[in-house]
Amino acid sequence: MGKLYVVGIGPGGLEHMTAKAKEAIEKSEVIVGYTKYIDFIEPLIKDKEIVSTGMKGEVERCEKALEIAKEKVVSIVSTGDAGIYGMAGLILEMKKDEEVEIIPGITASSSAASVLGSPLMHDNCNISLSDLMTPYELIKKRVELASEGDFVISLYNPRSHGRPHYLRECIDIIKKYRKGNTPVGVVKNALRDGQEISLFTLENFDDSIVDMFSIVIVGNSGSYIKDGKFVTPRGYSL
């Protein structure tokens, strides 16, 4: 009888992967994943059978992983956390009698927050601007309600060639509820090679530097910049 581990490998660097994730990969006979994610963990899987697919092959990957897991121990890998825009939900929707274990990882907003300072110290939410799975009108509604509720907002999949204006439009929505000096942090390739960090405010934000490898974090009404770090107070008495 096989088993399927659904593994969040974190931001990409092996030093940021959890011990549990490494253990699951070491136990696995077969590794399934998107080609670029497989590359991130290449030093751990040299002696493993590899099944990789390109972008938008999520259903195919999950079907293959579940099929193999009937007989072998398999890990299907996602960057970040497998349960946050990863493969965990799809696997659980598709599984029948296969044994499945979800292994968490560091999600992109946490990775980006760690290099920006402490932007997520109070109530916060993640919103993906990709409309492949969610209608854009619903995305904008979620941005509006999160802004009205004064959540710190982490924007995943913020800008692509196919939707170059979504980020700008969503920032304009947030501006209705936040002051112009509200911090906005952009981290590209958080905690991996090629990391770039940029700090803006809502009033001087430049969306042209943002791409699909970036996370954008917008502060709440109490967020501020101190000594080059993005801080959101928790509310402790000082």
Rank of each mutant, 00 (worst) to 15 (best):
K27I: 07
Y156P: 02
K72Q: 12
E144W: 06
A113Q: 06
V100L: 02
D131Q: 08
K141W: 11
S154Y: 11
K56G: 03
E23T: 13
A21V: 08
N124P: 10
F40T: 07
L155D: 11
T232R: 03
L199W: 04
I31E: 00
F40W: 13
I41G: 09
Y177V: 05
E93P: 01
K70A: 03
I209P: 03
M17H: 02
A108D: 05
E196Y: 02
K36Y: 03
S128M: 03
K36A: 07
I25L: 06
Y166F: 10
P164C: 00
I174A: 05
I9W: 07
L138T: 11
G180I: 07
I91L: 05
G13M: 02
T134E: 10
V77S: 05
G80P: 12
L191K: 08
L14D: 04
S198I: 05
Y85G: 02
P135Q: 11
V231Q: 07
I76H: 03
D206W: 03
P11F: 00
G89M: 12
A82M: 02
V218I: 15
M87W: 04
E49A: 06
M1K: 11
I68Q: 01
S223P: 12
Q195Y: 00
I38H: 01
K226P: 00
Y177H: 13
Q195I: 04
H165V: 10
S128I: 04
D206Y: 05
I25E: 02
V231I: 15
V187G: 00
F151G: 02
V74G: 12
S118V: 09
K188W: 09
H16W: 15
E15H: 06
K20N: 09
N126F: 12
L167A: 10
A19D: 14
P43E: 13
L132W: 05
F200E: 01
I139C: 08
S110A: 13
K229M: 09
A113C: 07
N126Y: 08
V210K: 01
S154L: 07
M212N: 01
K20S: 12
I173K: 10
N181A: 04
S114H: 13
C170V: 15
S223L: 12
I45P: 09
A24K: 01
L199V: 11
G117V: 07
V143T: 07
I102A: 04
S154T: 14
L14Y: 05
T232K: 09
A146I: 03
K64R: 15
E196D: 12
K46H: 00
G80H: 14
D193Q: 15
K46L: 12
S154P: 06
Y5F: 15
Y156C: 03
K229H: 06
G13E: 14
I25T: 03
I127R: 13
V216Q: 07
F40L: 14
D47Q: 09
K179V: 00
P158Y: 00
E203L: 13
